[in-house]
Design a protein around this nucleic acid. Structure first.
Lengths: 182, 182
DNA sequence: TATTTTCCCATGTTATCCCATAAAAACCCA
DNA sequence: TGGGTTTTTATGGGATAACATGGGAAAATA
């Protein structure tokens, strides 16, 4: 009953050390790769197993919110949400910036996953990202996005085109060494 | 008998560990997402289950007061009220600022919830926020707001428009690298 | 006593739980 | 190295619990 498409990156549980603690074998705990998963008639969407693993490793729950700039949903862990909350406290309550951040929070939901690793997308989310029966989940490092598949492909093509003509952005590789920097 | 609209975030009680202790799964106890609930002819409004849970977890009761800056009501727990009280203490009692904060307090009431999780909105509250038969409850982190639905939507649209043209406030990204933040 | 407010129960709709299945990946052993 | 076996993963659907909501009765208030 699977659309028979691509496959992600198979068995992931086994990457965990048997003691339960993570292997740390160069794991970076990032959201990478992309997946096209089905949205069933109840509105459920499977979160890719590798993403689930990233969240599980930090015992974090998943938050989804509506992007401020694109017709897609964004997924992240609690840290990002906490950042927004803290930033609001530091701003003038009446400022437009604060209002923008509040808009983000009022669209953010802590998602509860069922035993199979699925989340239930609200009607609001489905409409906002123009999702119907399948979704493209694209990892972008510390967060990921959920797109209507066709829209995502268009966007990807455009980005690759820009890279060829306009050049690739320089990567600043040296980052001030910080703690927790694996 | 439900307006058949949005899909909230269902069962929340079950997030509690069965031992009684909370899950602590990165729970941040924030008011997030938004809900459009009905106000019945008695003036009752259901507080979203997830908000109730936030309050219950700290065994706190709910306070509502009239916003100083917008035509909406604000909801919070006791600690926010305490903050205001403290702020007043630190100000010159005769200053205009103190007076402003006092105004907030004088509109605040501790709400009592019925067994179904509803509060009874006073005539004063209803008029102030221009509420009639439904209300939009929007979480903004440590507090939430209650708006007349149309007014809220207008506001949200405006905020998103500004974000698209004017950019998104940057969040402080510097922190120990972790998953899911981002 | 007249008017609220609170309590209690009823209801339809959703969300959640639970079980089942197929395909793909990982595993295993010769 | 290959082929068969076991897990994992994504998916579907039925049963069940939770939720938002409505309304009557009891209690409190004026």
């Amino acid at each position: 009953m699977r659309p028979a498409k691509k496959r992600g990156q198979g068995c992931l549980k086994k990457q965990l050390g048997k003691g339960g603690e993570e292997t740390a074998r160069g794991q970076m705990d990032l959201f990478l790769s992309h997946f096209e998963n089905r949205i069933d008639r109840k509105g459920r969407l499977s979160v890719p197993a590798s993403y689930r693993l990233v969240l599980e490793r930090s015992r974090a729950s998943l938050y989804l919110y509506k992007s401020l700039t694109h017709p897609c949903l964004e997924g992240c862990g609690p840290e990002r949400i906490a950042q927004i909350v803290d930033a609001i406290d530091r701003l003038d309550t009446l400022s437009e910036e604060a209002e923008t951040l509040q808009t983000m929070l009022s669209s953010a939901q802590e998602m509860k996953m069922d035993a199979e690793g699925r989340v239930l997308l609200s009607e609001d989310f489905l409409q906002f990202a123009d999702l119907s029966d399948s979704a493209l989940i694209a990892g972008i490092g510390r967060s990921f996005q959920i797109w209507q598949p066709a829209a995502w492909r268009t966007r990807e093509t455009a980005a690759r085109g820009r890279a060829r003509t306009g050049g690739v952005p320089k990567l600043t590789l040296a980052r001030p060494a910080g703690p927790g920097d694996g």
